[in-house]
Amino acid sequence: MDANSVFFFILTLFIGAGAGIFAYNRLFSKNSGKSMATTESTVLLESIEKVFKVVMAEGYFTEIYNYQHDKNFWNLIKDKKKALIIAKAKVLVGYDFGKMRFHFSEGDRKMIIDYFPDPEILSMDTDYKFYDIEQGWLNRFQSDDYTAILNEAKQTMNDKALESDLPRIATNQVQLMMFQIAATMNWKIDMELAESNKGHIKELGKYHPTQAKIENLEIDEES
């Protein structure tokens, strides 16, 4: 092989290698631009507190929430937006024993409760889904609208949970638990509550049946 042939062979190798590297870089950069994503997150721990909260009842709720907002522009154009929201929540009701006031009588082996707090919602896990979202040309949904809708739906769910039978169940459960634990340790519990507190706890422990009225149906029987 003469010198010209060797030179031509080496030149062909360099050109082919360069074209291959160029094509590979173009293909890699094109694909990587479409598929690669970078995310960053920062978690800040603000505080840690010791608590003595005990869950006594658990409930599941579903709420169908209709939202509609009508807007009138100069009494000429009426524009509305509306949405259907289905909200689901898991609600945990219990007691914060840090709010309870009590003292001990060592000689009598008694735990004397001076104040008994109300049951409260300790946790609420919610899930929202929006359906049938409609909006006009001028009256459109903004981020603040979604935030307001979710806050109102969550507050409604919170109110319904407190109006449900969960507080009664939690009240009866916590008293049963406390008396059973005291009995296993040969202690007694005395509830020396103020009259207002005593009456309130007694009322919470009552079962309130749903008031429902069923109308009589008139049925015409024809033979």
Rank of each mutant, 00 (worst) to 15 (best):
M1I: 13
M1F: 08
M1G: 13
D2P: 04
D2H: 04
A3E: 15
N4S: 09
N4A: 14
V6Q: 07
V6E: 09
V6Y: 07
F7L: 12
F9D: 11
F9P: 01
I10C: 12
L11D: 03
L11N: 08
L13A: 12
L13W: 01
I15T: 14
I15K: 00
G18D: 06
A19Y: 00
A19G: 02
A19R: 00
G20S: 06
I21H: 03
I21F: 12
F22T: 06
A23P: 01
Y24C: 02
N25V: 04
N25T: 07
R26F: 14
R26E: 15
R26A: 11
L27F: 10
L27D: 11
L27M: 11
F28H: 07
K34Q: 14
K34S: 10
S35V: 08
S35T: 15
M36G: 03
M36E: 14
A37G: 03
A37M: 09
A37Q: 11
T38E: 08
T38D: 09
T39D: 06
T39P: 00
E40S: 13
S41E: 07
T42V: 15
V43E: 11
V43K: 08
L44C: 06
L45R: 07
L45W: 07
L45G: 06
L45Q: 08
E46P: 05
E46N: 14
E46M: 11
I48L: 15
I48W: 05
I48R: 11
E49V: 07
E49G: 03
K50D: 13
K50G: 09
V51F: 09
V51P: 05
F52C: 04
F52L: 08
F52D: 14
K53C: 11
K53G: 02
V54P: 03
V55Q: 11
V55M: 10
A57I: 06
A57N: 03
E58P: 02
G59F: 11
Y60P: 03
F61N: 03
T62R: 12
E63V: 14
I64C: 08
Y65M: 09
Y65C: 04
Y67H: 12
Q68F: 02
Q68I: 08
H69K: 06
H69G: 02
H69V: 04
H69P: 01
D70Y: 02
D70E: 11
K71S: 10
N72Q: 15
N72W: 09
F73C: 01
F73G: 00
W74K: 11
N75Q: 07
L76G: 02
I77P: 02
K78W: 09
K80H: 10
K81S: 05
K81T: 04
K82C: 03
K82H: 05
K82Y: 01
A83P: 00
L84A: 05
L84V: 12
I85P: 01
I86Q: 03
I86G: 02
A89S: 14
A89C: 03
L92W: 02
V93W: 02
